[in-house]
């Protein structure tokens, strides 16, 4: 474990604490880190309830993104015509501001869980599909030649060489998606929902309970990091031997 970032973050926390206490900053403007932890423990039951809702939205959205993103990424890597057809469209979906789309989704799909899943999907699908497609397209022409002389069909060339080679790319997309998943769900809740960390956040803000707001954010950060680490862990197992030297940095 690298202790440098840990130490640095700790230093920031201490500075934060010192400045807030020293200057007597009002809690609704900036609560001290200690206060945030206190709020986290104090409102734990309520926070947990909202967290579970957000987690299920994010997980469902991520799951669908991974399944469809990998499938469509593969299709884009395998069929050039398909890639040329859909790629500009996918890029376009990423340029439309989400805070415009999110209310529309509520209009179309109601106040339930569906519009949240759609928002998460909109955010997470793209990096997965694009990185995988890119990994598949990038190829060593010598390797393809060699396999082809051995009598391999295009599908076999993909199965034997291109797909394994593209896996590290796919995982970098998955890691990006993992960090976006929770935030995507929160953003969707913000626009309209009954439960979830996003809703809880707006309530905390309106009542000037900044300490609870920070506790809410803390949960979002921790969840996102946990998801990221989980993907990294799977990557390490799957890609152990793919990159030269058997190491991924």
């Amino acid at each position: 474990m690298d202790w440098l970032p840990v130490g640095f973050s700790l230093a920031i926390l201490v500075t934060w604490y010192v400045v807030v206490t020293w200057h007597d900053v009002p809690e609704f403007i900036l609560p001290s880190p200690v206060k945030v932890i206190e709020e986290l423990i104090g409102s734990w039951d309520l926070l947990l309830e909202h967290t579970l809702v957000t987690i299920s939205e994010a997980f469902l959205g991520l799951f669908i993104s991974i399944v469809l993103g990998t499938a469509i990424g593969f299709a884009m890597g395998y069929f050039e015509t398909f890639r040329r057809m859909v790629y500009p469209l996918f890029v376009m979906t990423q340029t439309v501001p989400l805070f415009v789309l999110a209310p529309l989704f509520i209009l179309w799909f109601g106040f339930g869980i569906l519009p949240k899943i759609v928002v998460v999907f909109m955010v997470c699908f793209f990096p997965i599909a694009v990185t995988f497609a890119q990994g598949l397209v990038q190829s060593d022409s010598g390797m393809d030649d060699l396999l082809s002389v051995m009598g391999a069909t295009r599908w076999k060339i993909f199965r034997i060489s291109r797909i394994p080679q593209a896996l590290p790319h796919l995982f970098s997309g998955l890691k990006i998606a993992a960090t976006y998943g929770i935030v995507g769900a929160v953003l969707a809740e913000w626009v309209g929902a009954q439960k979830g960390l996003g809703v809880f956040m707006t309530r905390a803000m309106k009542s000037f309970r900044t300490g609870v707001l920070f506790a809410d954010v803390l949960i979002i950060v921790l969840l996102s990091m946990l998801l990221y680490k989980a993907v990294e862990w799977v990557e390490r197992i799957v890609c152990r031997n793919i990159t030269n030297g058997g190491k991924i940095t």
């Binding site: 010598g142 034997i160 394994p164 031997n241 793919i242 030269n244």
Partner: peptide
Amino acid sequence: YMLQKDHLLPWR
């Protein structure tokens, strides 16, 4: 057929 690069698959 053989090329300058060994083209051994690193995961095998």
